[in-house]
Design a protein around this nucleic acid. Sequence first.
DNA 1: GCCGTTTTCGGCCCGACTGTTTTCAGTCG
Length: 590
Amino acid sequence: MKISKSMGNLEIAKLFRAVAAAYALKEEDNKFRITAYERAADAVEHSSSEVKDLWDCGELGSLAGVGSAMTQHLDELFRKGRVKHFDQLFRGLPAAVFELMEIPGIGVKMAYKLCKALGINRTHGAVEKLERAAKRGKVRKVEGFGEESERNVLENIIQMRKRTTRILLPDAYRTAREVIDWLGETGGIKTAEPLGSLRRKASTVGDIDIAVFCERPAGVIKRFTQFPQVSQIIESGTESASIVVSRGIQVDLMVQPERRFGSLLQHFTGSKHHNIALRELALKRGVSLSEKGIKRGSTLKEFSTEEDFYGYLGMDWIPPELREDAGEIEAGISHKLPVLVELSEIKGDLHLHSSFNSEPSHDLGTSSMEDMIQKALTLKYQYVGFSEHNPSVSRHSESEIIDLVKTKREIIEKVNYSFANRGIFVFNGMEIDIKPDGSRALPDKALELLDYAIVSIHGSFGGEKTSQTERVIRAMSHEKVRIFGHPTARKLREREGVDLEWEKIFEFCHKQKKILEINSYPDRLDLPDVLVKEAVKSGVKLVINTDSHEVSAMDLMTYGTSVARRGWAEGSDIMNALKLADFKKELLNP
DNA sequence: GCCGTTTTCGGCCCGACTGTTTTCAGTCG
């Protein structure tokens, strides 16, 4: 196991998983040590802060699942770059084992057998070696394998290569809808629901989970495996099945009778960690949970609603967005769950790019202000704000920039006048680039002409944490700057966000009454949910915007609202849940 | 190896599906 100097969370998680695998091969009966390392790996992977940073501050203890032994190992890892105990554990174990485990359907036991029997040792080229062996009919001769599993190995290698990265929410919805439409009313289907991370509204979705409720599962499962775009049937049983559809996306199906609606909904929504925590809690109360219901001894009680299921455990119904085992179970028991913000509470959108030509260096909007305002009226908004990009600095003199901003102000005034009796108010904003040194790409004289400004990072994403933090704080330090737009500047599946000292940012925003944006664009969803939660805890106010460049994008508000909900935000945390009079006061005279 | 609102010892989530070693281990979610 090579560990690089940076030792990020992903690497540490990988190391812990390898340790778990190595213990699994030892055939000791202490299988709980194995799960302990797996759970620690999960905890590290999902930690919102870098484990190395936690170690620096002596706060490793705050990580649930990492106890004294692992703390000691991590201590050794960070000091010396390796852990003697782990090295001993890995001795005699082909490195290729961990490589082969990447193939679906191959776990540590099978990987080890294959490596030993076929003489695969090195990480490099391990999968190709296995593939060649399978093609030559050598895998079927390995103990525990046969012709069928040899075929599966080959097919799974192909699938692994095709496997796509996680997909964005709208794409996941589309695929789920296609599958559900295909199932139609087969087998007397009463309901079919997309669950899993899709229902929890995670920022990206790994696979698509669909629950079906009906009395005759056989026909449904058959129909499911005949989905036109199916590229592989992973498994197909009597009450569940898994397929791979185009682009390598896996779709899992579970079928239960309608009287078990509540328990299957709960089970299949997850998350895995939420379910594990819930089942552990249930055990302490002498009951056992599954998708079929709640068992006390051998008697099964069935649940037709999730509310009843959670209620039986003595807790309030938990909104799917919160089900990550991040305190929601405790809150559910003590009846202290937040009242999450709803899409219907949103009363305005402050990040719109109209087709007004501010002669920017970034993209212009394609819809007129009037069309966007009409759309806002159908969304029952009380206000909108137009925040086109600042005029390009390189192509304009300062006075030209000021003239452009003046022109826009006059247009906004006219627009406001013409919509005056339609019950909507238009704010005059602008989205301003934060330059690498933290200065703004708009002269202060022009800034004065605006109602408000959004500052955001559109370049120089790298760079060191402290200097980036100073950069952002400097950019925000003007009374007209009210909003920090898409704060991490991440692009999902494309680039990581900017590295910032969030505690400092939150503290600054709280003190100076600056607002952090939750950008609703599906490939941004920025501020990310985990940081929303921290921001809310720090008393920072948020605004949910769409960053629309055309009318149709204004419907994306639902995705940003989901991020807010996943961050435990209530209506009172969201600025644009305020009605116009209050919002105006907060925006213009904080 | 972790953890504690019945525990510092004695527990540790649940079940479906698959292929092979015909009674169950391995893998997955």
